[in-house]
Design a protein around this nucleic acid. Structure first.
Lengths: 259, 259
DNA sequence: ATGGTACACGAACATCTGTGCGATGTCAAG
DNA sequence: CTTGACATCGCACAGATGTTCGTGTACCAT
């Protein structure tokens, strides 16, 4: 399920949940969602939330007020425009440590004019670890794993070779990139971008697949070739038409953990 | 106000809120707090929450269900033992939970999450980057001393496979460990220790040399062999009597930065 | 036309949840 | 001993919230 395939309302709902939670540090209620997405009936909100849950984009705790959370890994894999919220995400994490979390009195929020964005040029930034990524033959990754704000890595911008914006991290599962020193259990830091250059290690989603994998990118005319880094014949390059592959981000750093 | 000055109950309340939120991604209700902190009256919970709010440890959204959030900056500044918030008290909460014949298989406090897997601990620590290795001056391995606060990496302990004590980091210069995927410019995180096991990648100082280098360690009777990971004949293993070699630390993590 | 499916509404309903308030226990100061 | 601040309790109650259910609309294949 692509994020862009969701109905306008559902996209707005997710966006609202993300923003609301970021601002208030607790999730919105069904009626609050309805108000801001212009749905008069709570049952319609519930209807759409159920849909979103069935897609794996959110998780719900039945009968609990505000008992819902966003599943960022699944969202990312579906093409959720993180750049719109990436700023907020990191900013939120940063603010949490830096200033008092203030409650937005009444979140009067208009989808159109959001995130005025100011590149807080702080030298340090946080990279949220949003979930896992398969790096091999389809490993069953629990798509329901929810975003856990407790897991992040904090670095100084100078450590990386790219601007410290739109960064996120994923835990690697599988051995497909073993020759590139990306082992099972490692953490890769990615910069969210829709495009990448040949040779870049990217998180890519292939239409029809249920998950995103880590591969090297190489273009071949109208196609893209996703190349694993493992000599084992079990791992073969995947060639697909460019429009069937979605780049979720480029790996900018690998954190390898020795035993 | 010091965290330790809070009453037992208030400390437990905060612990619970932190843990609950981390697990469920939404804050607990007053009654849920009461249940897990052994307060039968909702008003008492409210009373204590008000206290905590007046101290600035939490924020509340009046009249909103689960409308509360933890103020981490204030907590940390007050000496909140973040490192153990995932352990002791949490465990206590579980004991209560399991021994108290609760009702249906609700999503409750997610006892199912008992699986110690990736939820090991969220304890965070800072790793100072003390200098460079394999190129320059001997390293002053003393993480306790002053270091440039701009240069450090912050991680969650769960990310590593070793206790997060006595850690420090060095920038790598040179290619002596290229086959081990430690490239020029990478950052290695080491755990300060005088000994290591065969096969460990260590920072070693050889008597007579002016610098410390990165090598694989292997014992050979009374000698130790320091093996570089580079096929170039320029790099040769170094064999010395054990008492002429000093281990400065063992590499526990490698952070590779891609271009 | 007929029937099925997806989406939407709104009202009724059942809980969940926060708040208010009086009563009680504790403890140190007066 | 009395007093009063502080911490607890229990409980009633209103408001906040999620869920259910009957109904309506549009679209599409039969």
């Amino acid at each position: 399920m692509n994020f862009s395939d969701l109905s306008e309302r559902q996209q707005r709902i997710i966006h609202f949940i993300v923003e609301f939670t970021r601002r208030n540090h607790y999730p919105p209620s069904i009626r609050e969602i309805g108000d801001h997405v212009h749905i008069s009936s709570t049952s319609v909100v519930k209807y759409n939330l159920s849909k979103l849950e069935s897609y794996g984009f959110i998780s719900r705790a039945p009968d609990k007020s505000r008992g819902l959370s966003v599943n960022f890994p699944a969202l990312l894999a579906s093409g959720y425009p993180l750049q719109q919220n990436g700023e907020s995400l990191q900013k939120a994490a940063f603010v949490e440590e830096t200033s008092t979390p203030q409650r937005a009195p009444e979140l009067e929020y208009d989808t159109a004019d959001e995130s005025p964005v100011e590149r807080a040029s702080s030298r340090r930034f946080r990279v949220p670890i949003l979930g896992k990524i398969a790096a091999g033959s389809p490993i069953a990754v629990n798509p329901r794993e929810a975003y856990d704000p407790e897991d992040w890595i904090e670095l100084a911008e100078g450590l990386l070779n790219v601007p410290a914006d739109n960064l996120f991290a994923l835990r690697v599962q599988g051995d497909s990139m073993i020759d590139a020193s990306v082992l099972d259990g490692d953490i890769v830091i990615l910069r969210h971008q829709e495009t990448a250059e040949d040779g870049d290690m990217v998180a890519a989603w292939i239409e029809g697949d249920e998950e995103t994998t880590l591969k090297f990118l190489q273009r071949e005319g109208p196609n893209v070739r996703l190349i694993p880094a493992n000599p084992n014949p079990e791992y073969q390059p995947i060639v697909r038409p460019a429009d069937k592959v979605r780049i979720n981000g480029k790996v900018v750093s690998v954190i390898r953990v020795l035993k």
